[in-house]
Write a protein that binds this DNA or RNA. Structure first.
Length: 569
RNA sequence: UGGCGGGUAGUUCAAUUGGCAGAACGCCUGACUUUGGAUCAGGAAGUUGCAGGUUCGAUUCCUGCCCCGCCAGCCA
């Protein structure tokens, strides 16, 4: 079972979808469409995988087919059950229903039997050489490979040796099974690739039943065929493996081993993986960040993992919309992270309730407002969604205002508060700054203001206008909290592409900035884990699922004033 | 170096049997506003990698060259 990515957003076509359409019209698979998402459970999913998930599940849904989640768990030394569970969660969070998870390891027996068949047919042999020797014999891009001295072993000897490999008679690395193809093929992938290696390792699902494990090339296409996959979609770097993928399935098909007619065998198609600026998207490098404590874990909001992005506050719908927008092609491309953010803003603008929070507070006393008086004002939860309703916000004589919203000597085009100037407080009144109280060091400590009772609700009966509306929090009612702000994980747009430099050199020490002492309006005390909230005039934030009173800034609002200020220098 | 895959506004993608090169983000300008930040409108932006060829007409077809990516794990 799978559900459409975004029924409302039209999905642009691409070369994969065109192929699927063509196959449906031609009746290649009797109209059947089946894809799969095949992660290796050796880490958590990142946004690059989201592109693949949206593609595979999306294509299946659009063409009335199915998409299966399959663990490519053929390398026991790096894989773990926790990652399986995490991957399942992440796929569901992204909005797709994978159904029962499939495992390549469930096919080990079948694949092993097929390997014996290859041997019987003279299409595979056991090689006793070590990895280094085999590698040296493989040749180079311009030099053909040379045959292994073991290439001409008899079928009987090969079969006996392979069965003993399985029986555990040999230590790791002493023998491998190789496909017998062509050591002179211009494509090194075809130069008798290793398809089984000996690993006396505990597998997270098959336990200690096996000590020989198939390699990717001798497991992936086979798993696809067993499951009935029609379109096996993978990334560009597997392009040179496609002849191998085809070779194996054609041989098995000719031998009558495949569950379906050879004409209906799966076909591999390659697309460009997703790359983003200012981050890294390789499991190896992400694992490094986690294991070396450079981030707090796989779900650290600085991480481009799905769990990290979720905690940061990225809605799954925004990820899906982004993936639909960037399309699928064979060009290697690095997307600007700003593009992703614009999709996040789009979605968050629709769904987030608004609240008032003062991050860097400065005290304001409304001199003519009665001491002890409190007015509960009605505030709109989401102007984009009337159904979100309203809430009550307390107003009183002493307030917190954003320090950045006041300038004693206003810069040009600064329309906020300054001595003698009048502004509107959102949902409340106009206030005017009468005087400034300074501390011993001369810093502004407090603003003395007056309010105009006639401007209740924010309108002046005499028709006078104010240029700006400020957010505020009643000091007596404020809840203290923490905001965590995030900047680019890497200062360099392309940390991976700096000649001779380690990407870690560009790790941004200010990727996370913790802002303490923020004052929240009281309703935020009831924020739910993962709740998306727009702090008015500041940005979109997300309530941490574990840490009470901690909000992650998902993304800031577009800030024209910041641009003006930048231009002013 | 051999093989394979690519090259279209700053960026990422489109362009339906060869028919006026479009969109989004970004950028600039403006409008509006009880979020200066929401929202809306407009604008700039291209020798379609280069050079030839076929054609009335080429991003599209052909040839050569240039540039980028991937491939020489018992990882996936």
């Amino acid at each position: 079972m799978s559900i459409p990515a975004e029924p409302s957003t039209p999905v642009a076509s691409d070369f994969i979808r065109e192929q699927v359409q063509r196959d449906q019209q031609l009746g290649t698979y009797g109209g059947r469409v089946q894809t799969r998402f095949p992660p290796e459970p050796n880490g958590y999913l990142h946004i690059g995988h989201a592109k693949s998930i949206c593609l595979n599940f999306g294509v299946a849904a659009e063409f009335g087919g199915i998409c299966r989640l399959r663990m490519d768990d053929t390398n026991p030394e790096t894989e773990d059950e926790d990652f399986v569970t995490g991957i399942e969660q992440d796929v569901r969070w992204l909005g797709f229903e994978p159904g029962e998870t499939l495992y390549a390891s469930d096919y080990f027996e079948t694949i092993y039997r097929w390997a014996e068949r290859l041997i019987t047919e003279g299409l595979a042999y056991v090689d006793d050489q070590d990895a280094e020797t085999i590698s040296a014999q493989r040749g180079g891009f311009t030099e053909p490979g040379t045959d292994s001295p073991y290439r001409t072993r008899t079928v009987e000897e090969n079969l006996d040796l392979f069965r003993r490999m399985r029986a555990g008679e040999y230590p790791d690395g002493t023998r491998v099974l190789r496909a017998k193809i062509d050591m002179t093929d211009p494509n090194p992938q075809l130069r008798d690739p290793v398809i089984y290696r000996i690993r006396h390792a505990h597998h997270h699902r098959t336990g200690d039943r096996w000590c020989v494990y198939p390699n990717y090339d001798w497991a992936h296409g086979q798993s696809d065929a067993i499951e009935g996959t029609t379109h096996s979609v993978c990334t560009l770097e597997f392009d040179s493996h496609r002849p191998l993928y085809d070779w194996f399935l054609e041989r098995l098909g000719e031998l009558g081993e495949l569950p379906r007619p050879l004409a209906e065998r799966p076909r591999q198609y390659e697309f460009a993986r997703l790359q983003l600026t200012h981050t890294v998207l390789s499991k190896r490098k992400l694992l490094h960040l986690v294991t070396n404590g450079l981030v707090d874990g796989w779900d650290d909001p600085r991480m481009p993992t799905l769990r990290g992005l979720r905690r940061l506050g990225y809605p799954a719908a925004a990820l899906r919309a982004f993936c639909a927008h960037i399309g699928v092609a064979k060009v290697n491309s690095i997307h600007e992270i700003e593009l992703l953010e614009s999709f996040v803003r789009d979605e968050l603008n629709r769904i987030s309730e608004r609240r008032m929070v003062v991050l860097n507070p400065i005290k304001v006393v409304i001199e003519n407002y009665p001491e002890g008086q409190v007015e509960w004002l009605e505030a709109v939860n989401n102007p984009e969604d009337p159904a979100a309703g309203t809430r009550q916000v307390p107003f009183s004589r002493e307030l917190w205002l954003e320090a950045e919203d006041f300038m004693e000597v206003p810069a040009p085009k600064f329309y906020r508060l300054s001595p003698g100037k009048e502004v509107r407080l959102r949902y409340a009144y106009f206030i005017k700054c009468e005087s400034v109280v300074k501390d011993a060091s001369g810093a502004v400590a407090e603003l003395r203001c007056t309010y105009d009772p006639a401007t209740f609700g924010g309108q002046a009966p005499d028709g006078r206008k104010v240029k700006t509306t400020l957010h505020w929090v009643s000091a007596a009612h404020a809840v203290q909290g923490e905001a965590r702000h995030y900047n680019r994980l890497f200062t360099e747009a392309h940390p991976d592409a700096q000649e001779g430099r380690d990407p870690l050199e560009f790790l941004n020490p200010e990727a996370r900035v913790i802002v303490t002492g923020a004052r929240f309006e009281p309703s935020l005390a009831e924020a739910q884990p993962f709740q998306h909230i727009q702090f008015e005039r500041l940005g979109y934030y997300c309530a941490d699922p574990e840490l009470a009173g901690v909000f992650h800034r998902t993304v800031g609002l577009r800030d024209d004033w910041a641009k003006i200020r930048k231009r002013q220098g």
